[in-house]
Design a binder for these strands. Sequence first.
DNA 1: TTTTCTGCAAACGATTTGCATACAC
DNA 2: GTGTATGCAAATCGTTTGCAGAAAA
Lengths: 147, 147
Amino acid sequence: MPGKFTMEDLKQRLQERQHKLTTQRQTVLEVFLSHPGEHLSAEDVYGILRGKPLDIGLATVYRSLELLAELSILQKMEFGDGCSRYELGSALPEAHQHHHLICLKCGRVIEFSDDLLDELEKDVAQKSGFQIVDHQVKFFGYCKECQ
Amino acid sequence: MPGKFTMEDLKQRLQERQHKLTTQRQTVLEVFLSHPGEHLSAEDVYGILRGKPLDIGLATVYRSLELLAELSILQKMEFGDGCSRYELGSALPEAHQHHHLICLKCGRVIEFSDDLLDELEKDVAQKSGFQIVDHQVKFFGYCKECQ
DNA sequence: TTTTCTGCAAACGATTTGCATACAC
DNA sequence: GTGTATGCAAATCGTTTGCAGAAAA
């Protein structure tokens, strides 16, 4: 189980780039901390925060998500459902080996962990001259319930 | 070099689903046949066809792309540039092993072929109970020019 | 106090849709 | 002929932006 981000991590990374630690940014991070393993869209986050003490604007949600992704706290991804989704990364840079199984029938997205890809990444880097910093793998198929 | 689609293949697959072989659908397929290895968006296709004898509507381009993807003639993919892109699949169902290297600086997308993923796919299928029909792999990094 | 952020509403760009006409079968 | 497809324009949806007021440093 890799280490999760804390508010202290957030504060630190923001300061490094002369950004401010605002209530809104903290709140957005808290949403992800309290929804582990979910792939939330901007609308999802906005919906979760509706009616809560802090009434955040949708535009601010978008701006916060973008910033948190730049700080490598969140990872941005597309599952082909028309909107960008984000998930919490690990605080440990080398521990991002998770793939996604996307069911073509019900749309469910299941996480899957595996390290076989390290080998492939090295192979690709060597053959192509690319300096690889990250990868994303998606498998499309049918989940147990939909087969 | 895997076999490419022909107009005959298109006709056949359309008929199987009681769809009609229209000039527009043929023309869209021709664009992909004459632009091998490119990842074209709807706007790209529309632009390529502008001024050509057949003046196709943008909405029809979108509808044709969607249909060709349903028929497994094209494959739909997202590179994070705000629009869906398509590329011609192989006529041979088992020969779709191509990955994409996406440069984080210049946005260039480079194709890369490798078969190491077959093993991973089988492994994932067995452990998860998913029936896998396709996969997509994206590597993010910096190309030779941008390093 | 200075700079960065937020909220709102308007702007935007990609994609979809309604509907009357045109075409494939 | 009948049913599907097209073209156009309007509608939609996710996302971005301009700007004045609010909050962090």
